[in-house]
Design a protein around this nucleic acid. Sequence first.
DNA 1: CATGAATGAGCTTTCATTCAT
DNA 2: AATGAATGAAAGCTCATTCAT
Lengths: 207, 207, 207, 207
Amino acid sequence: MPRAVREQQMMDAAVQTFGQRGYRAASMDEIAELAGVSKPLVYLYLNSKEDLFTACIRREAQALIAAVRDAAEPDLAADRQLWAGLLAFFTHTAEHPDAWAVLHRQARTHGEPFAAEVVVMRDEIVAFVSLLIGAAARETHRADELAERDVMALAQALVGAAESLAGWANETPGVSAKEAAGTLMNFAWQGLGTLMAGERWSPAGKV
Amino acid sequence: MPRAVREQQMMDAAVQTFGQRGYRAASMDEIAELAGVSKPLVYLYLNSKEDLFTACIRREAQALIAAVRDAAEPDLAADRQLWAGLLAFFTHTAEHPDAWAVLHRQARTHGEPFAAEVVVMRDEIVAFVSLLIGAAARETHRADELAERDVMALAQALVGAAESLAGWANETPGVSAKEAAGTLMNFAWQGLGTLMAGERWSPAGKV
Amino acid sequence: MPRAVREQQMMDAAVQTFGQRGYRAASMDEIAELAGVSKPLVYLYLNSKEDLFTACIRREAQALIAAVRDAAEPDLAADRQLWAGLLAFFTHTAEHPDAWAVLHRQARTHGEPFAAEVVVMRDEIVAFVSLLIGAAARETHRADELAERDVMALAQALVGAAESLAGWANETPGVSAKEAAGTLMNFAWQGLGTLMAGERWSPAGKV
Amino acid sequence: MPRAVREQQMMDAAVQTFGQRGYRAASMDEIAELAGVSKPLVYLYLNSKEDLFTACIRREAQALIAAVRDAAEPDLAADRQLWAGLLAFFTHTAEHPDAWAVLHRQARTHGEPFAAEVVVMRDEIVAFVSLLIGAAARETHRADELAERDVMALAQALVGAAESLAGWANETPGVSAKEAAGTLMNFAWQGLGTLMAGERWSPAGKV
DNA sequence: CATGAATGAGCTTTCATTCAT
DNA sequence: AATGAATGAAAGCTCATTCAT
């Protein structure tokens, strides 16, 4: 069996094991057995547990980014792009729960070398969302109302909400990707709208 | 030294170690040394690593819940209660980063027994937020517009966004709890408002 | 059983195993079993295989140096001191063949960290021998005939010959320490005598 | 490429690797890569690591013996033959440090099967030196003074001193083979001379 | 003639856990 | 009430060695 194929099999097994057991609790023995190969072969092809984990993170991050990127066609309006991206995001995470666990939970929990990999991916997504927010602001001619930092914070909150909903949708039976995306659009986009319309909430009272 | 005090010292050391190293990487040796006691004493008082971790999760969950609960005085308006709760949440997580790491990262990353503990806490918070959303809906006389499930999903998204912002605020220098809470209120409460005002976003076009 | 005693037992087992199997071929399992303890205890007390090996080298080097030092009483004439030292050297190495193997073979064969330890010991011995050669030169009033470098080279050769003879004496049944020491004295001291008497061998013919 | 050539290339790589890393630390992978062939080919030609090591020892032992043998022309006087042999010995070991490391350090450090190979070579050299000593004794007509066993012990000491000096000369910059050989001749041959002249050192006093 | 693919066995090291005192 | 002493079990990693082609 050619090396490239075996490598993918190993990474499939690794993603599954890391996602379910966690990085430390996952043993190379288990991964090798699940992949149907011997442990030395895993080391021969992927060097070390750390390298294997990093390779998994990278592969799954690429896949998730690609899913979101491919869904949002640049010709659409900003809100339609966001909708398509969210739908793709919820669909992809629902279809690859172990990969999502690796990216969202494991990679961020086990130290800099791994967390940094995910930060890159997350920053790409946040940047993409920021772009859409900016585009939406321009579309409604109120760009001046939103400072750079506000856009960042909003994007952070939106992505965070999406990540949280992804977990909830995966664990709650009967919640579809469409429903999750719809909830988030209703929750966020509308708020964004009024926000750009100039209304602000403050502890002293609405402005 | 009385037992109760010793136990708290051990749990302090455990929270710190678990939060920084992670559940698996934290060793009982390190925890015992940090607590200034011998290892057998830790076992005598807290039985096992699992039990110790569970005890930490429970203690810190209680503390976080209490902080949020105590902040939101029931006499205030729903939006003021949410604001106070969010502020307390961001303040508490910023002041106890290791405890927050234990709850948000470690507990959810290392298997059912622990994740379940956090789910209890999270559900309490989500229920609390749902309550406020419901109250707000009643205050604006549009309760019928929001189905039970929508409320749940919104609460999930709000809590998820808060969790995400908590991490972002802790890691980004110069972002205060007040600022984080303000961003979230602007982002969410407004959206909630228009939502309750009957406007919906849908892929087919705004309604 | 107190720690200090156990540590010596472990080092005894380690010296034996390292001496017979070699550093790499000796397994911590075997050492632990020979010492009558579990492997973790060996690590608890002696940290690592490298540290254990280093500790063995140091202990045995000290013991050998002490044996030679204690034998050569400073009041004696230089030749008697050398005789006593050689006798002690051959006796000690014959009585502790594994220790001698560790020092002479293993330590020098497995890289700088270990070889350096032995170099220290060897340099001490070489210095001691150089001292005696110098003393002998003064006793015969021909100190000016022997340059510093010649003394060093002679000491090197003498120590080398002694090391070689130690191996030979250990492996050849019926060769006593006394005999080995006698051979070396005859071989070397006499040559030293004539050398200091001014005679030299050169490829061009005797001078 | 003919088999014989490939085999020599492999053994060159093996000698270098064994000499620098040691028998156990040297991996067949590294040897194969250094030789520029695949691992199975090494096994096809040389059977096993043990066999490969043995082959290296044998080849290098032959080479060293040959160098010494060829240098000492049988027509010369005994002292000139010894001089020539020593010079060749120091020159050869200086020019092939890895080979010398294999013979002097590695082979003797890793168990009987290999040490025995070197013993054969060493015995050949010792026998050769013994021969010269005997010849010298006959030349000076004092053969009766030197018992067979004394000759052996002297040869052992001489060879040991030479081995020790070889290491010293290789590691000390600026010490040439000629110088090392000269030192040894001065040190040993002279002693031999007086010895054969009937003088002995004994603990009871000179005879 | 030569190799890419694959593994059984063994190594060092760590850790949660328990006695005996 | 508290600990020094000790271990069973398992993990990451490496290596000599062999097939099928």
